[in-house]
Computed example of a mutant assay.
Amino acid sequence: MNEPRIQPVEAPYDPDIQAAFDRVMSGAPPLLLFRCVARNPRVLQRMMAGGLLDRGSISLRERELLILRSTARCGAEYEWGVHVAAFNAKAGFSQAQLADTCRLPVDAGLWEESELALLAMADALHEQADIDDDLWQRLRGYFSEEQLVECVMLAGFYHAVSFLVKGLRVALEDRAPRFPSAPESAGSRELGRGCS
């Protein structure tokens, strides 16, 4: 990875910045991403206000699946790893499923049908910035309109976060896992390092 382009702010933090960190981090040290964005406190405040990590209309597992696939498709190892570290204990993905979020094509045998539809949605939005009518009808078989609005917004938001972490060259977090190193099957390819 290249050298970081923006150095993270260091403690002690401005009171407004500390308050933003406290709201999101629940007492844990702030992530490097947040400390880099804090170079522009207004953007940090807007980013924190626009997040979708609260209790939404879809399950935590569905949310994390969309985030992992979207960030993997963008090659945003930082964000992928942070989400695995922070949420996989509750999301419950197996190691094979985590690795599969970084592969094309996915192994359909690892996923429920509704999860395959979400993976296809993340791929379609990444590849075409659109969802064709057939996939939309497939998604409607599993998700309400309210949920679909959230799903599309999640994929878009995490594309933006991926652009941010890659564009700023945010250093990887020590406690976060890395992308898998090699595909498990000969017919698949790793997404990982670049936008695929």
Rank of each mutant, 00 (worst) to 15 (best):
S162M: 06
R193S: 12
S114K: 04
F93W: 06
E77L: 07
G81D: 04
S162W: 01
E190T: 08
I58N: 01
A122K: 03
R193E: 15
D132M: 05
D130K: 06
P30M: 06
L118D: 04
V161K: 03
F143D: 08
S144C: 12
F163N: 06
A28Q: 06
L116K: 05
D14L: 07
I131E: 06
I67C: 11
A91R: 04
M47H: 13
M121D: 00
L118N: 04
C151S: 11
A122Y: 04
Y78I: 05
L119T: 03
A176T: 00
R5P: 00
Y78D: 01
R189T: 08
L98P: 01
N88P: 03
R138Q: 04
S185K: 09
Q45F: 07
C74W: 14
R42T: 14
D134M: 07
R46T: 15
K166F: 02
S162V: 07
P183L: 13
F87D: 10
L66E: 10
A99L: 12
A76M: 06
D14H: 09
A117K: 00
I17W: 03
N88Q: 02
R42M: 12
G156K: 01
S26A: 13
F157L: 15
Q7K: 13
E77G: 01
E10V: 13
D133E: 12
D16G: 14
L31E: 02
R178F: 02
A20S: 14
R5I: 00
L60G: 04
L65N: 10
Q147T: 15
E190M: 12
P183C: 11
E173C: 05
V9G: 06
Q95K: 03
R46F: 08
N2C: 11
V84R: 02
M48I: 15
R169V: 01
D132R: 02
E145I: 09
G141S: 07
A20F: 11
V152Y: 04
E3L: 12
A160N: 07
R35W: 09
G81S: 04
A11E: 12
R55P: 08
A186P: 14
H83V: 10
Q137E: 15
V37F: 02
A96Y: 14
R42N: 11
L191Q: 05
A129C: 14
A96F: 13
V37N: 01
